[in-house]
């Protein structure tokens, strides 16, 4: 007999048993419990029937979707995964960045203090008398311009040998999309993709609805 407090736990365990998620010992215990309890056995059978129905329904719906569409969906998924993988992750903040952030509350007062000090220094300088007995300052004579390492022209790099020329009568195509005035897809499947650089028309030769290896 089941106690009321045991029912939710048992239902969860039964579902986990059904899904094969219990560890070996728990699964054995659950199997024994099911053998003893016809009500649980009935629940388990109902779950199996339900899964079968849902699975069949999904397969029927999948069969209605053409293989080409599955391929397109998977391509889009692959593309989004690639984009996520290639997205740069934020680099951890360096020591100085953390110090700078820690001093954020003191920045304004520190700047104000520095400004006041600068004003005071200028005022003191203006009030002081002219220095006496000091040699006149002489403008420094510019040294003969010596070539700095940056000025020295590096020898021109020798051009890399060209790859073997391929007979190519056409220039590189300009980045431009085509304007489609009319289109008919043989199998009533296809799509137009405008990338900004090129127009791509996708067609699929095999028009029959069939399961792909990637299908549900």
């Amino acid at each position: 007999m089941n106690h009321d407090s045991d029912i939710p736990t048992q239902a969860a365990d039964l579902q986990a048993f059904f899904d094969g998620e219990l560890d070996e010992a728990s699964a054995e215990r659950m199997a024994e419990t099911i053998d003893r309890d016809p009500e649980l056995r009935q629940h388990l059978d109902q779950m199996a029937v339900m899964r079968d129905l849902v699975g069949r329904s999904m397969e029927m719906r999948a069969a209605e979707v053409p293989r080409a569409r599955f391929e397109q969906i998977w391509d889009e998924i692959d593309r989004s995964i690639s984009q996520d993988a290639s997205r740069p992750t934020a680099a951890p903040a360096s020591f100085w960045q953390r110090v700078w952030a820690a001093f954020q509350p003191f920045r304004m007062p520190a700047l104000a203090a520095a400004g006041a000090a600068a004003v005071a220094l200028v005022a003191l300088q203006m009030g002081s008398p002219e220095p006496v007995n000091e040699p006149p300052t002489v403008a420094s004579v510019p040294k003969t311009a010596e070539p700095t390492p940056r000025d020295v022209q590096a020898p021109a790099p020798t051009p890399a040998p060209n790859p073997p020329a391929i007979a190519e009568s056409f220039p590189s195509p300009p980045a431009a999309e085509a304007e489609i005035h009319g289109i008919e897809f043989g199998g009533k499947q296809g799509r137009i993709s405008q990338t900004g650089v090129v127009t791509v028309l996708y067609v699929e030769e095999d028009t029959s609805a069939q399961k792909s290896e990637r299908s549900l």
Binding site: H181, G182, G186, G190, T199, L201, V203
Partner: peptide, 11 residues
């Protein structure tokens, strides 16, 4: 069979 038939203009 024909898979595609299209009229288009392009650079």
């Amino acid at each position: 069979k024909s898979l595609l038939s299209t009229d288009y203009s392009i650079n």
